[in-house]
């Protein structure tokens, strides 16, 4: 009865080691292991530049926030990046009040995140 989360991956033309990864649902303690496996499988395949689209992400708790920071750190250690786009205002508030907004690469628009890959 884990909380529903769906993760899909989309290629970015002209960017061999980059993907848009779309998250749908809630990110919490019941599915952080699944989410970690998914993202690290991308890293393992050499996809080290990820734009995480949170347009359909309803909820993130402190455990979910912890793995987002972990993804960000791991991607940077591999010479890549983990950018987050389309956060809803409730989730952004949680990230902000916990003091993590400045630690994550957050963009309002997908176009801005894509442009930053250039």
């Amino acid at each position: 009865m884990e909380t529903q989360i769906q993760i899909t991956c989309e290629e970015i033309p002209g960017k061999a080691n980059a993907r848009i990864v779309r998250f749908t649902g809630d990110l919490d303690a019941t599915n952080v292991d699944f989410t970690t496996e998914q993202i690290f499988s991308y890293f393992g395949d050499g996809i080290i530049r990820i734009i995480a689209d949170f347009k359909q992400m309803r909820y993130v708790n402190s455990t979910g926030l912890g793995i987002l920071l972990h993804f960000n750190k791991s991607a940077k250690e591999k010479g890549g990046c983990f950018k987050i786009v389309n956060l809803n205002e409730n989730v952004y508030e949680i990230i902000e009040i916990i003091g993590a907004a400045s630690l994550l690469d957050i963009y309002e628009e997908m176009s801005e995140a894509l442009a930053s890959l250039e």
Binding site: N61, L69, H70, I97
Partner: peptide, 20 residues
């Protein structure tokens, strides 16, 4: 300290409750 480290995956729950 309210500082959030970049690699600490756990331990923010109580601080979050307090702030909310």
């Amino acid at each position: 300290a309210n500082h959030v480290g970049n690699d600490d995956r756990r331990g923010r729950g109580l601080a979050l409750i307090r702030m909310l």
